[in-house]
Design a binder for these strands. Structure first.
Length: 586
RNA sequence: GCGCCCGUAGCUCAGCUGGAUAGAGUACAGCCCUCCGAAGGCUGUGGUCGGGGGUUCGAAUCUCUCCGGGCGCACCA
């Protein structure tokens, strides 16, 4: 409908050009908006206001000329000039009834589109370091990322969901060493646990398992472990130096192979847990991409080579630097440290190069907002490699601050004080958690009140939407209990009986679903879908209270049943897209 | 200090890429089940859209500048 009106206006513009009212070179950007107020019709165009200056007339006069030049169309019953020069369009309400048939025919397909057809898009999200379980902060990235991916798929893109596993680097060494130290405790060795090590209970659990299976195989005397280790922060030393020394000591005392056991067991354990967690949260990936693999197969070295060949690398202070300041970053960055190890950034350059090489038309990285300073350097790297950096889209997800009532909950993976995603799911359930996370714009700082979310009260809006779905199901059950049968065709033939105001509103809202979905997808804004669903549910509940569906009159009854079944279908489609259940009773 | 995000009803947030009288939820005050589920509906109270300039027919939306909050600014990842 929207597009149809745009067509008509375009024709009117062409006519005015021929008449000389408008200059030939004008190519108007025609936008049709849905009106907020029914008095203004169904759609409105502000074109006359926009072109008045160029046409050197006042907007109302131009609008009148446009209206006069507008071709006739059967589905438009009235065109009106309003306000400073808006052109309002009134749609024949009977045209709206079509949507019920359409929803019925298309079922689960209703609302899907093909605007993204033929385009491959990669969405990388969560990608939390496998050094501990996912917490509620990661949950937002997971819910948002998967919703964005699912929306893009719904509008026709070929979507590849990926998790980048940081299974290399110092953080993983700290983890391996943390596990080993806990293991030594299990063995009875007395070693003060470093302040900078991972303190979470899961570390102890993993260590306990290793001890159970391997007994004292990895045991080394505490004196040897601590010999000449610089003091920890608590003793007035530097915590980083302390932990680094312990890592080196672990590698020496255990030897590469045994040390690797801790590394690998830790990784497998935690990554395995993350995979289960995400899967249960309704988040599935096509690929888990290993950072270590990039290092092992030479991709990192190759990427650096390419940068070097292009003249973007230089040596200074024993390290290798990438000259990204010239390419938009605020300063140059180290890619190979003085000790010969490449940095995380170097891996990431190789990773993004790899993404581009895989032929995606669009690469979407979803990061926590604390990584925003990282964007310019990645873009600089792509530019340096001669890649089309417009293919990269970075979406930032702001932090979710946790509250328990008034009290803010502090979180740190290192300290082990955090609420895990799993705990959250167990408390509020997958549906509420997903809904809550995606309800807000991603750039919006979010206050996640555990007390509120965990209180199973009706304050949680997910129940409201699910209840609308369950209510339709309930009506259908009541129909059955009364011994009546639904007559689909009779209902379709009598859709014109749906003339109540509530019914007209619902029809309009249902019609809007496909365009809303497309917008939400192309703008990466799943919260628009949530808003829509809440609105649809609200209109349904209002309708429900105002009118009886199961009336004696069969023609009206079946027409209304067709309408509410269409509502049920759209609710199911929308919630289904968000991986939220649609209960038939609750 | 520099950079990114955010300031809209008491609280949590929408606001369709500059449009017509700024909207929901919640809280508060009332009302609605002999009738398809009251996890619902209806009515009301509640706003100088953080402050101030600017751009124009028109600004919550764009721009500048202050103020306030969050987060970054490593040879960590």
């Amino acid at each position: 409908m929207k597009k149809k009106i745009e067509e008509l206006i375009l024709q009117a513009v062409e006519t005015l050009k021929v008449d000389g009212v408008l200059a030939q070179e004008i190519t108007p950007n025609i936008t049709i908006d849905r009106t907020r107020d029914a008095q203004h019709g169904d759609f409105a165009s502000n074109l006359a206001l926009m072109l008045a200056k160029q046409a050197k007339t006042n907007p109302r006069q131009l609008a009148e000329k446009l209206m006069a030049a507008l071709p006739e169309d059967a589905s438009i019953i009235k065109v009106e000039l309003a306000g400073p020069g808006f052109i309002n369009f009134f749609i024949d309400p009977t045209a709206q009834f079509q949507v019920i048939k359409q929803i019925h025919d298309q079922g689960r397909e209703f609302g899907l589109s093909q605007v993204g057809a033929g385009k491959k898009v990669q969405v990388e999200f969560v990608s939390a370091n496998p050094t501990g379980p996912l917490h509620v902060g990661h949950g937002r990235g997971a819910a948002y990322g998967s919703a964005v991916a699912d929306l893009l798929e719904a509008v026709g893109f070929e979507v590849h969901r990926e998790y980048y596993v940081n299974d290399a680097g110092r953080q993983m060494d700290i983890l391996a060493t943390s596990i080993w130290l806990r293991y030594l405790e299990e063995c009875g060795e007395v070693v003060r646990f470093p302040s900078n090590a991972y303190r979470g209970d899961y570390v102890r659990e993993i260590a306990g398992d290793i001890h159970k299976n391997a007994n004292n195989e990895y045991r080394r005397p505490a004196e040897l472990v601590l010999e000449n280790i610089p003091p920890d922060e608590a003793e007035g030393g530097d915590k980083e130096e302390h932990i680094d020394a312990l890592i080196s000591r672990a590698k020496i005392l255990l030897g590469p192979s045994l040390y690797q056991d801790f590394f690998q067991i830790g990784l497998n354990n935690i990554l395995g847990d993350i995979k289960i967690d995400l899967s249960e949260f309704g988040v599935d990936y096509q690929q888990w991409f290993s950072e270590r693999q990039l290092m092992d197969d030479g991709s990192v070295a190759q990427a650096l080579e390419r940068l070097r060949d292009a003249g973007h690398l230089y040596q200074q202070d024993g390290a290798t630097w990438f000259a990204c300041a010239k390419l938009g970053d605020e300063k140059d960055r180290v890619v190979v440290r003085e000790n010969g190890q490449s940095t995380y950034f170097a891996s990431d350059i190789a990773y993004h190069m790899n993404k581009l090489d895989r032929g995606f038309d669009l690469i979407i990285d979803i990061w926590g907002a604390d990584h925003h300073g990282y964007i310019p350097r990645v873009r600089a790297a792509l530019a340096a490699l001669g890649a089309d950096e417009s293919k990269l889209k970075v979406l930032l997800v702001q932090f979710a601050s946790l509250y328990r009532g008034e009290e803010k909950v502090s979180m740190s993976t290192r300290s082990g004080e955090f609420v895990t995603l799993r705990q959250l799911r167990n408390e509020v359930g997958k549906d509420a958690a997903r809904f809550f996370y995606v309800m807000r714009r991603s750039e919006q700082h979010m206050d996640f009140d555990l007390k509120l979310a965990t209180s199973k009260s009706n304050e949680n809006p997910v129940f409201y939407v699910q209840y609308a779905h369950a209510r339709v199901c309930s009506v259908l059950r009541q129909l059955d209990e009364k011994g009546w049968e639904r007559n689909l065709l009779l209902g379709m033939d009598n859709l014109t009986l749906l003339t109540e105001e509530h019914e007209t509103h619902l029809l309009g809202t249902l019609t809007r679903y496909p365009e809303m979905l497309e917008r939400a997808a192309l703008q990466y804004e799943p919260h628009q879908l949530i808003q829509y669903l809440r609105e649809l549910a609200n209109e349904f509940h209002t309708y429900y209270n105002a009118h009886q569906f199961l009336v004696e009159e069969v023609s009206i009854r079946n027409a209304r049943l067709n309408l509410i079944c269409a509502v049920k279908q759209v609710l199911a489609n929308g919630l289904g897209l968000l991986n939220i259940n649609t209960p038939e009773a609750m």
